[in-house]
Every structure is written in C-alpha cells, then in structure tokens.
C-alpha cells in the first residue's frame, strides 16, 4: 500500500489497513523470539564424581616424568603471614634448598595463616603506606586447619616450618611439636635426611588445561604406595600453589612492597577443601584419582571485576605461575611422631 492511497481513506480504514502490518511485525518478533532463544530447564551439568570434560580438546597436556616420579620428594611447609616480621628469615632458610643440588627433591608450600599475621587489612590501616597495603588475605580453610593442627601459630607465633610433617617433640601438645623453629632445627637438616631415603610412595600427575574462556583444569593423579603398613590409613591431598607473588611483607619491621612470596597455597582441590584430602586404598597397586578445577572468575586473570577497586586476592591469580601440588600422608594408630607424616610429594607446573 503506498502513501497516496492513504489520503483517500478515513482514520478507521487506515488503522484497519495497518493493523495487518503491525500484526505481521509483532508476529515476526514473536517468531524471532522463539527461534532466537534457548530455554534451559536443567542448568547444572550432572555427572558422577567430577565435572564432565569440555567437548573441545585441551589447550595443553603435561605430566611429571618417570624420572621425576622416582625421586624422594619432601614437602616443606612454611607457615607465614605478611605481618609476621620474622617470617622472611624462615623463608631465607628455605631458599638454598630451592636452588641447591637437591632442588628437584623439594616441594614447597607457603601457607598463610593466623588472624594477627595473615588477615587482609582494610584500607588505610597503615600510616604512611598506600591504602591497599596488606589488603590481600591469602588464608584459606585448609591452611587454617593445618595451622591449628600442626603449628598453632595463633598461640605459638610464626614462622613455623615443617618437613614432611614429622614431629620433633612428640610430647608437645597440639601444634608446635613439629615446628622446626620451636625445636631450633635448621630446615636443611631433616630435609637432607629425609630425601636421602628411598621413596615410600610415588605420585604421577597428568594435567589437561583448557585456556579461557573454557578455563578448565583436569588432572589424573596416580599414586602408588610402595609398602603400606597395616593399621595405617593413607591420604592424598591435591592443591594449587602460586609461585612468585610480589606483595607486601613486614620484614623486621620494614614494610617491603615487592616481597617475593614462593609457592603460596591458593586452593585445595580435593577433600572438600578441608586440607585432609581423599583416602587411598590400602594397596601397592597404582590408583588413579581424577580431579577437575574450574572457576571462571578465578581464572580470568586479565579481567577486572565490573566495579572497582577489585576484590582481592581472588581476582589476581596468575595461572602462569600456578603449580599442582600433590602429597600423600599417613595416619597411624600409634600417633606421634609419624602420624600425619608425608610420604611423598610432587608438583607440576601448569
């Protein structure tokens, strides 16, 4: 219908003539709406155990080598906090192990803990420092649980260092008994001793990584107990640790903005994040456990949140510096000094 023909109509005729066009337009919108929309009634992917694998091939697959798996590796834990003025001294004690002849035998975890030393402080908490100084809270549930059990840094203070969670003072109460600092031992002493023995377990890690936007991490952890003892139970803990974080640290009352933090515990993947891991079968046969990790928010390293300034620390995980750390520990009915002792540790750079 052209414009000229309208001029010969009254309003009613024009309206009725156009009602068809308007109706057609509304219908077209309705068709578009129904065809351009996917309604989802079952949002959550259901699967047994772990997350289903993405349908696309992984961006990268990597694994620990057989040679590496055969080494005895000790788990060295450094319980620390950014407001712990003496903690850098403990880290310095560990540094030579990371570069020494037995560098391949150390698996380090820096565990931030305690309210006093580890909390993330509100802005403007420190006179003369930028308002975000010491704002990041690196503590997680697993680290808090470990601290309460092994170090008790809230009462004993920090730093606290352990090698394979051996107790050096079996008579000590909860916490403190395996803290090398409290027992005045240099970390290299038990480290050299423990890594000179043959491994009692081995851990092989295969990881598959999907780059953003899929942001998915899958891992197969194959554990072999060489000589499981009757009555003991064995557990596997799998976590993520981020190396080379530069952030604030009190070092003997000097505020250092670009202090290098090594292998900071970020996330425990299994055992519901408690830190106590998943139980292993009492067998010498290899046993493989499959784990996944996906958290779109955490793995969007280059994305800031919609409003600023960002919440920290979760926004700033650097996955390029991230390691999978796995270790096997035992629980013994006889208790200390070998209860919770770590038998083997392993790590794999993502």
């Amino acid at each position: 219908m052209n414009h000229q023909s309208y001029c010969n109509m009254n309003n009613k005729q024009i309206l009725s003539a156009n009602i068809g066009g308007i109706f057609s337009y509304v219908m077209a919108l309705a068709i578009l709406f129904s065809s351009g929309c996917d309604y989802i009634t079952n949002p959550v992917v259901t699967h047994s155990g772990n997350s289903a694998l993405p349908t696309s091939p992984p961006t990268r697959v990597d694994s620990t080598s057989a040679t590496d798996d055969a080494l005895t590796k000790a788990l060295v834990e450094d319980y620390t906090g950014h407001r712990c003025e003496n903690c850098p001294a403990a880290a310095i004690q560990i540094d030579p192990l990371l570069t020494g002849v037995k560098a391949a035998n150390i698996v380090l975890l820096q565990v931030n803990c305690t309210l006093t030393f580890g909390q993330g402080f509100p802005k403007n908490s420190f006179v003369g420092l930028p308002d975000t100084a010491y704002g990041i809270d690196y503590r997680i549930t697993a680290g808090n649980n470990w601290n309460n059990t092994f170090i008790n840094g809230d009462n004993n203070g920090l730093p606290g260092t352990m090698v394979d969670r051996l107790y050096y003072s079996p008579s000590a109460g909860a916490g403190g008994g395996n803290d090398l600092y409290l027992n005045v031992k240099n970390v290299s002493t038990p480290f050299d001793s423990l890594t000179a023995t043959s491994p009692t377990a081995s851990i092989h890690i295969i990881d598959s990584m999907w780059a953003p936007p899929t942001s998915f991490l899958a891992m197969n952890i194959t554990t072999k107990l060489h000589n499981p003892q009757s009555g003991n139970t064995y557990w596997l803990v799998v976590c993520l640790a981020e190396d080379s974080i530069y952030d604030w640290q009190d070092s003997l009352n000097v505020n250092r903005q670009y202090y290098l933090k090594r292998m900071t515990l970020r996330k425990v993947i299994n055992g519901n994040g408690s830190g106590w891991g998943d139980s292993l079968t009492h067998t010498t046969s290899p046993q493989t456990k499959y784990y996944t990790f996906t958290n779109d928010t955490l793995m969007l390293n280059n994305s800031m949140p919609i409003s600023l300034p960002p919440k920290i620390p979760t926004r700033f995980w650097n996955m390029a510096h991230m390691y999978i750390v796995a270790f096997v520990y035992q629980q013994t009915p006889s208790g200390k000094p070998y209860d919770y002792m770590v038998l083997q540790a392993q790590k794999l750079h993502l």
Binding site: C37, D38, Y39, I40, N42, P43, V44, V45, S51, A52, L53, P54, T55, S56, P213, T214, F216, T292, T294, D296
Partner: peptide, 8 residues
C-alpha cells in the same frame, strides 16, 4: 563451552 552448566 562451560563444563559445569548447560549454557544456552
């Protein structure tokens, strides 16, 4: 491409 959710 989300492994956790059936995305529209």
């Amino acid at each position: 491409d989300n492994p956790s959710y059936n995305m529209p």
